[in-house]
Amino acid sequence: MEKFTTLESTAIPLPIENIDTDQIIPARFLKATNKAGFGDNVFRDWRFHKDGTANESFVLNDSTYSGSVLIAGNNFGCGSSREHAAWALVGYGFKVVISSFFADIFKGNALNNGLLPIQVSEGFLKELMNHIQSNPDAEVTVDLENQLLSTPVGDITFDINPYKKTCLINGYDDIDFLVSKLDKIRAFEALIN
């Protein structure tokens, strides 16, 4: 997993609520056996018409907006547990998603792939969304060590589990940790059997 420490970037506003993982990556693209290439199909059916031509009205096709921060409406990532959604966002180049609420499984999948979900209040999200929509060149800064999100509409601190924060900063994942616990796990198995 790639390390995450700080980020300074412009942002892409996507003011839609309840964006489910089927929208982030439709099921017909889940047939790969590796993690590569999902970025090409992120938000596929919003980005492209059925004939394959670009939907110019979708924000990812609007050259006004760019950056590795996605600002999305409430309850982002609901629905299917497919980690392909996180792979698709990371593959496209996103490093941070800001929303007022994240679905559980998506949040875990994002953190396991170096994609930082930052939860902010609904009021803050609305203000930030509006500002970025009318000021596409505005930048936001993320400082993970200090859990600080700096934006043109204000600076806030965000929550993250301390263990997950350490993992992101160092590029570790839970497999390393769990494998280090195998003796304890074996002892537990002996106890329950």
């Binding site: 996180a86 999948n109 994942d173 497999i175 769990l178 616990k181 796990i185 198995e189």
Partner: peptide, 18 residues
Amino acid sequence: FGIGTSQVAQVFASQCLL
């Protein structure tokens, strides 16, 4: 409960989740 693929790998490796 449902899990992501990273967690599938974690359970493969340890039969546990964090």
